[in-house]
Simulated assay, not measured.
Amino acid sequence: MIEKTIKISMLYDFYSPLLTERQRDIIDYYYNQDFSLGEIAEIFSISRQAVYDTIKRTEKIMYEYEERLKLIELYSSRAETIKKTFIQVEQLDKLIKKNAPKEELEEEIRVIKILLTDIHN
Rank of each mutant, 00 (worst) to 15 (best):
E103R: 10
F86R: 04
L95W: 11
S36K: 09
I109P: 01
S45I: 10
E80H: 14
T117N: 09
L37I: 05
E67I: 04
E103T: 13
K113N: 11
I40V: 06
K70R: 15
K113M: 13
E39H: 01
E106N: 09
T85H: 01
K56A: 04
K83L: 12
I119A: 04
Q88W: 04
T81L: 13
A41Q: 06
D53I: 12
E67K: 03
E107A: 08
R110M: 06
L116I: 12
K98C: 10
D93V: 14
M62E: 00
I112Y: 00
K60V: 08
S77E: 06
K60W: 01
D93K: 13
L116R: 04
L116Q: 02
K83C: 11
V89P: 00
D53H: 10
K70P: 06
G38S: 08
E67C: 01
E64C: 05
I55A: 02
F44S: 02
E107S: 06
V51L: 06
R78V: 15
N99M: 11
S36R: 09
I109A: 02
L37S: 04
I114T: 06
I114Q: 05
E64G: 05
Y65E: 15
D118C: 04
E90Q: 08
T58I: 01
L116F: 03
I119F: 03
A100C: 11
I61M: 07
A50C: 09
V111T: 09
I109V: 13
E42A: 15
K60Y: 03
S36E: 04
E67T: 10
E104G: 01
T58G: 02
E39I: 03
E80T: 13
I40E: 02
R110A: 11
I46M: 11
